Simulated assay, not measured.
Amino acid sequence: MSDFTDDLDDLETAEDFLRFFQVGYDQRVVNVNRLHILQRFHDYLGADSGLEGLDDSGMADRYRVHLERAYQDFVVSTAIAEKTFKVHKEEARKMADRFVPLDSLLGSPV
């Protein structure tokens, strides 16, 4: 195990990650979105096929970029809009399935 992964093991909260990777943050954004930020960060890391073979410095740089991106997603949007968790994705799908065009309620124009 590398020093970098040892350091990661010590991080517990969203604030721990943000401080460790030196990502500036607004506590109000984190208070509302902490789990969403961490989940999005995890998703970005999972989608990054370029992490293999990087040294600790390269990994730290890449992780920082993904964490900054994840945090910014929730600065400019909301957890509901971002549909971070499965429950949000399922709810959006259900809403789309329940969508009824206004024209169908009013009937055809005469």
Rank of each mutant, 00 (worst) to 15 (best):
L11N: 06
E12T: 13
E12N: 14
E15P: 01
D16K: 08
L18K: 06
G24N: 15
G24C: 03
G24D: 15
G24Q: 13
D26E: 10
D26W: 00
R28M: 09
V29A: 01
V30Q: 02
N31H: 06
N31L: 05
N31R: 10
R34Q: 10
R34F: 13
L35Q: 13
L35G: 15
H36R: 14
H36P: 03
I37S: 01
L38E: 08
Q39R: 14
R40H: 13
F41C: 11
D43E: 14
D43M: 10
Y44Q: 14
L45C: 13
D48F: 05
D48T: 07
G50C: 05
L51T: 08
L51S: 07
E52P: 00
E52M: 03
G53Q: 01
L54N: 04
L54D: 03
D56S: 11
S57T: 11
S57I: 09
S57W: 04
G58Q: 08
A60L: 04
A60D: 04
A60I: 00
D61V: 04
D61K: 12
R62G: 02
R62W: 02
V65R: 13
H66C: 11
E68M: 09
Q72L: 13
V75H: 00
V76M: 08
T78W: 07
A79W: 05
I80N: 09
A81D: 15
E82K: 15
A92P: 01
R93S: 04
K94M: 13
K94Y: 10
K94H: 11
M95V: 15
A96C: 03
A96K: 14
A96N: 10
V100A: 01
P101W: 09
S104M: 14
L106I: 07
S108D: 12
P109F: 04
